[in-house]
Structures are given as C-alpha cells and as structure tokens.
Design a binder for these strands. Structure first.
Length: 582
RNA sequence: CGGGGAGUAGCGCAGCUUGGUUAGCGCGCAUGCUUUGGGAGCAUGAGGCCGCGGGUUCGAAUCCCGCCUCCCCGACCA
C-alpha cells in the first residue's frame, strides 16, 4: 500500500519552466521524474512503478515468443566497437571514457557487438539455433539535442533484443515473432500507433519497420491515407505512376524563344502570355534538377539529372534515402563550368542523355506525357517534348516531395502527414555483425554457416512518455490501468474519522490484491487532495469524505469523470469490480 | 554548428533600462491558532555563491569584457 503521508513525492502547482510538451510537464509536476542533468532523469517512486509496469508488459511478451532475458554490462571496452567499425561510425553520439590505465571505454548505446560475441562464445552448432536474447537496461547516447523530458534522453531505459538464425527464412520468422510481440505489447499498453516501413526499398535486402505512437508532439513525420490504414515514412512512399498515354497524334516538339525565364514561375507566366490557346501551370513543366553522387570510397563525383514536374521540389531526404549509401550534393559553379553543355536554368533531358549522364525521372513522368522543358540553350524552352518519343530516361526515381493530398500508393484515399514518436524498431540486420565477428555455426554437412541476425528495440522510458502524450487532459495524467502506479486512489477528506476509514478500506482492498494508493495526509484540504489525485492519474478513485456520516462514499473514474455515490459497505466490492472490469 | 530566449531560495517569477543602505513576491517548507468537498486564513520563522571569472566604481544582481550552462527552433542523429 502506498501512503501519501509518507510517500517520497512532491507535486508541483506550476509547470516547470523548461518543459514544453505535455508528458514532460505532467511527469515532472506529478513527481514521477526529476531532471538530474540535460537529458538525464531520476525516476521517483511512482515513476519507477510505472516504468517497471511497462517493462513488465514488454518482458511478458518477449518471453511469450521465447525470448530469454539476460543483462549485459553498459560499460564496454572499445575493442568490440572497433571490430564492428562503430567506435568511429557513431561519432559524437557515443559517451566515451578512459579507465585508470588510459584504456578506452564507452557506455553502450546499443549492444549488437556484445550479443554477437556472447552467442559466438556459447554456441557452435546449427542445432543450437534459433535463439532470441534480450535485455532491459539503461542505454547511453550523447544526443546533440536532448528534449522533452524522458522522450529523448541521453540516458534511457530500453528493451533490446537480438535474434540469431542459421538462414534467411529463420530470420524472417524471428522478425515476424518480434513484430507480433510488439503489436501485443503496444496494444496492452493502450497506445495508438502505426507501423511504418522505415526505409526505401531501393536500399535492398534488409527489412525494417518502425512503430510510431501518433501524437502531435512526435519528432517523426509520416504519411497516412485518409481511406485505408496505409502508413509510411516519407522516405518510403512510392509514387503511383499514372497510365501511359499514346504517343501517336501528339504535336511535334517546338523550341520557343523564352527570354528571361530561368525559373518555373517566370516560364509559366511567359507561356500563358504567349496566346497559345491554353493555360499552363507549373505541373506542365519538366524541371531538371542536377545533383552529383559519390559511392562510398569512390574518388569522383558523378553528375546526375532528375526530371520532375515543375510544381514539385526535390526532397533531399528522400533522395538521400534512395541513393544511400552514396553521398548526394547539389552542383556548384565548378561543376557547371566542367560541363558546359548544362545551361543553368535551361537544362533539358537531352543535354544529359546525349552527354552520357544518367537521367532519372519522377514516376509521374510516364511514356506519352508532354512537357515544357529546357532547350539546353540560354533563353530557350521546348514545348511538347514527349517522354518515350523525344527523350527516354534511364529510369524513375523517388526524389520528389510528398504532399498532403497526393494519392495513396495503395490506391485508396489521399495522403496526409502526421507526427509520431518512435517507440519501437524492428530490423533485419543480416550478417553485418556476424561477419565482423565471424559468428558461424556448423551445419548438418559439417561446414560452417554464417549466422544471420535481427535487432529489435523498444524505448521503455520513451513509451511511458508516449502514453502520457496520448492519455492526459488539462487536469493531469490518465493512466491505462495496466501500467498505472496503482489501481485505486483512496482519498480521505475531512477532519473526522475519514482518514481511518480510508485506511481500513485500503487495507481490505489490498488484501484482495488491488494495488492501492491512499491519501491519508492530515490537515490537507480536500481541494489539494482532489487535484493531486487528478494530476497523478490513477484510473479509479474512492473518496471517503463528507458522505461518511450518511454511510456513503464516492467512486470516481479518472478517464470518464463519472462519479457515483455508493454505500460504504459496498465500497470494497465496487472498487474490486471496477478494477477487474476496467 | 546556425538562429532566438534565459540563468536571482526547492519550484515559478519580479528587480537590471536609470548602480545606492537590509535583494523582493507567490507556491512549497517549519511553528501556533482557526479552517476541512475543489490548490484555506491569520501570525511568526527558516531558506540566497543574484551562473562563473575579471574589470569600472566610494559602492555592482544592475554597467563593461571574457567564459560556462540551460531552454526553444533548425541542422545533425534514430
């Protein structure tokens, strides 16, 4: 039984000055957490209970799919991260330290290396696999900008698990198991979330999905459909291609003298003023954006053209995702000087194609579409340049921005953007770490097989904040019962025997297995107790107050605000029923 | 790293422009009396490196120089 009279808790009347988002404000005001350093938080007694409850749900679901819990050190020697290349790759995000002998250590940001070595040390036969190991532990990442309380901390509680399989089918099964475990866990936690594909298909091979809790304060932007349950990261959206048009019968391409029209806007105005018997919009023009790419380790940049409708911008994040792992950059003056056939502001497809540069187009640029585009000559544009007749691109590319109102890739509804908090990530790692550490198992034929891995994370402390983001009102937190710090908040008000009766009922409830928080503080006014109860957010409240003389107490539901006067002698029964039913 | 804001009691803030005697208010905390169904009242208290260092001055929370830290937006990260 938790007693407010002795509980290590101080609620705050005012929002902390450094808090912006609701979960941060409410968790600090409710005394669930206290800031210790930037991005570093102390979990107070009630917060610790909630955190453990969330971890408990995740643990149960991990065990259900056969996961085995372990606990690895957070303090790690540099050598393993050198072997995987991540000592350098992770950059400033790693917390690094030295021991007394000057040897390098780090605080674990994630544990692929050590888990791989752990399995390598124990297992060596195909018969040992598959295996799923997980831990729930503090992680450390020196984020450039920690924010929003525990939502993005530099030290945070995380469940990370790793699957080890002998072949790709096994990896797929382990991945699917995790996916189902995450769905069950997040459902039990009462979260509203979507599962989005985390990467563009162009990256090839490794599947990865993110679980995003939908909230306006989320850091990740994703799109979803108005009509279906389609949801995806912006990087992963695939633009539906319109049907091809017949080429026959289209008018011939004509070059026009178009002075002073280096931008789409000036170009459209020019053609609309030209008296051609129709009006043009930016979407009738084909904009050719020039970029350069460089493969990892390559010395030279390669210039590349991207053709897209003139009303669209290139989304560099999408482009980078598609071209990953190559780097991308815009052309500078020196690049234009090196390629004199590129006339800035008047570049057309054929300058690129005739000079053996790669030219990719937006999926909307299909065969038979006619465009106004650059004529590769200063102050000249060409009209009715038909794709498939006058130029043939090298392929399509997903580089154009995604906009609200675009058709959904699954053909149902249109897209709109939403924001979410990444609460889980499942990832088919493949053999990257197995290769780095030569993790093999002998197959039935006596030959070594390289093991394939998956890694899967849930930000436990972040989940707590995400739940608060989704479940609060202007008075405070509204905990889902499964993770609430208590099932019932018994409040004694008044100066008579109310407190004693409250404590007695609390004891009876506890004896029946109900988790009880009782406000037995003396000399604290009812208003204070009610406001605290609402701020703390325990799902059910039982008020032992002014009705006691008439033998009644009041039952309140935090989520709905419903209140009911009930006879004192029925109180324990009614609360137990509410707890069981709610 | 770029832009903006801020460091004064446990929390939230005023004071700084225009230097001045004992640095103030609300909440919280302590003691006493009253009060007890929506953040009570009165009284009396405790609690301060005014971010740090230097400078100007008879005198600095206040003016000047340098530094540090935090928050927000962006970039970056996932």
């Amino acid at each position: 039984m938790l007693r407010m009279s002795t509980l290590f808790l101080r609620t705050l009347r005012e929002d902390p000055a450094d808090a912006e988002v609701p979960s941060h404000k409410l968790m600090v005001r409710g005394g669930y957490v206290r800031r210790a350093a930037p991005g570093v938080y102390t979990w107070m007694p009630l917060g610790k209970i909630v955190l453990d409850n969330v971890a408990g749900v995740i643990r149960e679901e991990m065990n259900r799919i056969g996961g085995q819990e372990v606990l690895l050190p957070a303090l790690l020697p540099r050598e393993y991260y050198d072997a995987s290349g991540r000592w350098t790759e992770y950059g400033d995000t790693i917390f690094r330290l030295k021991d007394r002998k000057g040897a390098d250590y780090l605080l674990g940001p994630t544990h692929e290396e050590l888990f791989t070595l752990l399995v390598k040390g124990e297992y060596s036969s195909y018969k040992d696999f598959p295996v799923i190991l997980y831990q729930i532990q503090e992680k450390f990442r020196d984020e450039a900008r920690p924010r929003a309380g525990v939502l993005r901390g530099r030290e945070f509680h995380m469940k990370d698990s790793y699957s080890f399989d002998i072949d790709d089918d096994g990896l797929q099964r382990s991945y699917d198991l995790h996916r189902s475990a995450y769905i069950r866990a997040f459902d039990r936690l009462g979260l509203r979330y979507v599962i989005v594909s985390a990467m563009s298909g162009a990256m090839g091979g490794s599947a990865s999905e993110e679980f995003l809790a939908e909230t306006p304060t989320g850091e990740d932007t994703f799109v979803r459909s108005t009509e279906s349950d389609y949801a995806a990261n912006v990087e992963a959206v695939r633009t539906p291609a319109p049907p091809a048009l017949p080429i026959e019968g289209q008018p011939q391409a004509q070059v026009h003298h178009t002075p002073d029209t280096p931008t789409i806007e000036t170009l459209v105005d020019f053609f609309n003023a030209a008296g051609l018997g129709r009006t043009f919009t930016a979407a009738d023009t084909l904009k050719n954006v020039l970029v350069k790419t460089r493969a990892p380790g390559a010395a030279d940049w390669e210039v590349m053209g991207i053709g897209l409708p003139g009303d669209r911008e290139v989304d560099m994040k999408r482009l980078e995702a598609v071209l990953h792992p190559s780097e991308v950059a815009l052309l500078d003056e020196a690049d234009f000087a090196a390629n004199p056939f590129l006339v800035k502001g008047y570049v057309g497809p054929n300058a690129l194609l005739h000079n053996k540069l790669r030219y990719y187009v937006d999926p909307r640029v299909v065969e038979g579409t006619a465009w106004i585009t650059g004529a590769d000559k200063a102050d000249h544009h060409v009209m009715n340049l038909v794709c498939g007749r006058d130029f043939v691109p090298d392929g399509t590319i997903e580089a154009a921005e995604v906009r609200e109102g675009d058709p959904s890739p699954d053909g149902r509804g249109t897209l709109y953007t939403a924001r979410g908090i990444e609460i889980g990530h499942i990832f088919q790692l493949g053999r990257k770490f197995a290769n780095a550490f030569e993790l093999d198992a002998l197959g039935p034929d006596g030959k070594p097989r390289r093991v394939t891995m998956g890694s899967y994370g849930i930000g436990v402390s972040r989940v707590v904040a995400a739940i608060v983001e989704q479940s609060h009102d202007d008075k405070g937190i509204v905990w889902p019962r499964e993770i609430a710090p208590a099932d019932v908040h018994v409040v004694g008000t008044g100066k008579g025997e109310q407190n004693e009766v409250a404590l007695r009922i609390a004891g009876e409830l506890e004896a029946r297995g109900v988790r009880v928080l009782v406000d037995d503080r003396k000399g604290v006014s009812p208003g204070v107790k009610f406001t605290d109860a609402e701020l703390l957010g325990v799902p059910t409240a039982l008020i032992v107050g002014k009705g006691l003389d008439q033998g009644v107490v009041e039952l309140r539901d935090r989520a709905t605000g419903e209140r009911a006067e009930i006879p004192l002698e029925a109180a324990v029964e009614r609360v137990a029923a509410a707890v069981a039913g709610g």
